[in-house]
Simulated assay, not measured.
Amino acid sequence: MADLILHHYPTSPFAEKVRLLLGFKKLAWKSVIIPQIAPKPDVVALTGGYRKTPILQIGADIYCDTALICDVLEHLAPAPALYPEQGKGLARTLAQWADSTLFWTAMAYNFQPKGAADLFGNAPPALGKAFADDRKAMSVNMTRLRPLDAIAAYKSYLRRISDMLEGQPYVLGEAPTVADFSLYHPLWFTQVRTPSLAEILTHTPAVVQWMERMAAIGHGEMQKFDSASAIQVAAASTPHSLLIDSTFQDDHGIALGTQVSISAESFGPEPTEGELVAATRTHFSLRRTDERAGTVHVHFPRIGYVLKKVETPA
């Protein structure tokens, strides 16, 4: 199997989710550090437009969104399981809630003035403004919570997580599932990146203890890599998806082989265009060609993404 190449940056919470998953699965991986904000030309060479963090590259296959990356890692290393047979539907549903509602509540809380000072206080003012402008452009289709409105909600969610941990080390039992990793990364950002605001976590000691158990998993065996080399890997490879479901499921009236675009429903609306080569119950795959990366397949989960036919001019 080709190397696992994670394109990420250290302070990305969703990247922390995947780094921890790689440690959980005991998988070796290569680390490509990418910019926090646009432009990201080497990322776009692989994805065709999508620029959220992280992406997972395996040869000429590019996997977007951590929900789909979880499925790939589960296929590569089925044990220990992210989706235990008993309760796998609950684990997936809780993970989806954590990656959306909990995440955006935590981010609204974290980016109040004290948290922003933790993040950007020692940086040139232009850097903070550039970050804010970038995330505003990625949020054009979203209604964002205001920091003060997020405080009570975040406290409530932490209490609910604490309740889930009552009498057991992880939220669904004796071992971590995908739900734990999705619940962890927004809280990690509060704890590690905005320490001035981390006191909110101390009101739920069970959550803090669970976070210590999660952090102890570690990031596995990492080797530094660079984006130019990653693009060369793609150019020298032939796409070969590791996603095991393949049955065509047509919910759009769009045939395989059609030129389409795929974009996120809300955050990060930049579209990726290409030839539709898979549309299954769980994912979409596009074939596209880049002058540097060659022919790649870019994969997206169905949930959270919009598929449209590209209309050619008459």
Rank of each mutant, 00 (worst) to 15 (best):
M1W: 02
M1S: 10
D3I: 07
D3T: 10
L4Q: 03
P13T: 13
A15W: 05
G23S: 08
L27Y: 02
V32D: 05
V32M: 12
I33E: 15
I37N: 07
K40C: 04
L46M: 13
G48F: 02
G49R: 01
R51H: 05
T53R: 02
T53L: 04
P54Y: 09
P54K: 09
L56Y: 04
I58C: 08
A60H: 04
Y63C: 04
L68S: 02
D71A: 11
V72R: 02
E74F: 01
Y83L: 12
P84K: 11
G87W: 14
A91P: 08
A91N: 12
A91D: 10
T93K: 10
W104S: 06
Y109T: 01
F111H: 11
Q112Y: 05
K114T: 13
G115N: 09
F120Y: 07
G121I: 01
A130L: 03
F131N: 03
D134M: 02
D134F: 01
R135P: 03
M138F: 01
M138H: 05
T143H: 14
P147Y: 05
I151L: 11
I151N: 08
Y154F: 13
K155Q: 15
S156Y: 11
S156Q: 14
Y157E: 13
Y170S: 08
Y170W: 11
E174N: 11
A179F: 06
D180P: 06
S182L: 07
P186W: 10
W188P: 07
F189T: 06
L201A: 07
A206I: 00
A206L: 10
V208Q: 09
A215N: 11
F225S: 14
A235P: 00
S246I: 03
H252W: 11
L256V: 14
G257I: 12
V260G: 04
V260S: 04
I262W: 02
I262L: 09
I262M: 02
E270Y: 04
P271N: 05
T272C: 08
E273V: 04
E275Q: 15
T280K: 08
R281D: 15
E291R: 05
T295H: 08
H297P: 05
Y305F: 15
Y305P: 02
K309R: 15
P313R: 10
